[in-house]
């Protein structure tokens, strides 16, 4: 089935729960109300004509600091060999979605990853813990307004350009293959623009 037909079918079934459908996008995607995600997914999986038996990708993204977070589901059907994508937006603070881990087992770990990196809670996920970061990490790293914590168990976390503070190189003529011009370190007066820009972020 083409994505347009699938979207029509979804709209006929769920009505205004399907908020919009971007059919001109490269991967046509339907935007779904957050509370209807599980019902829509269950319908997509169980309906004989749709039969999306594989959740190929489940990814979160951030629409920008101060705006909503979103989750996108890329579904694929081995039987009919068609694709469809749905997405749902949740508020930044306290956003939560119903889980689809009971429909597709693969979604369990993907939801854990979205929870880990974006802080979106999935109600009903059997094992919603942090997966990539340590359990006691602070903050949600992939949000646009994420500020890295200063210390983690006494370890300094933010990367600091510290090589400028090395005392170099007392004259050591055999330190490499190249003929070096400097015998002493040159202190930084102004770093290059890119490094300064990135450290500000």
């Amino acid at each position: 089935m083409t994505p347009e037909l699938i979207a029509e079918k979804l709209q006929a079934r769920f009505g205004d729960k399907i908020l919009e459908f971007a059919k001109d996008a490269i991967n046509p995607v339907a935007k779904v109300a957050p509370d209807a995600v599980h019902d829509v997914c269950k319908f997509l999986k169980d309906d004989a004509e749709l039969y999306f038996d594989m959740c190929h990708n489940l990814s979160g993204y951030d629409l920008g600091a101060g705006k909503n977070l979103a989750v996108i589901y890329h579904l694929f059907s081995f039987k009919h060999q068609h694709w469809f994508a749905i997405k749902a937006e949740v508020p930044r603070e306290g956003g939560h979605l119903p889980t689809v881990a009971l429909l597709w087992r693969t979604a369990e770990w993907h939801e854990r990853e979205v929870f880990d990196l974006y802080g979106i809670r999935f109600d009903g996920n059997p094992d919603l813990r942090r997966i990539l970061c340590p359990d006691d990490w602070e903050g949600w790293p992939l949000r646009k307004d994420y500020v890295v914590q200063e210390y983690y168990h006494g370890i300094r976390v933010p990367y600091k350009e510290d090589w400028n503070n090395f005392d170099t190189l007392a004259a050591n003529p055999e330190r490499g293959h190249f003929v070096f011009q400097f015998e002493k370190r040159l202190p930084v007066v102004n770093g290059n623009g890119k490094a300064a820009e990135k450290s500000n972020q």
Binding site: F166, L169, F182
Partner: peptide, 15 residues
């Protein structure tokens, strides 16, 4: 042997 020795200086100007 030292980390600072891995920073290579290529400029021809004296520091």
């Amino acid at each position: 042997y030292e980390r600072s020795n891995g920073i290579y200086h290529f400029s021809k100007y004296e520091p």
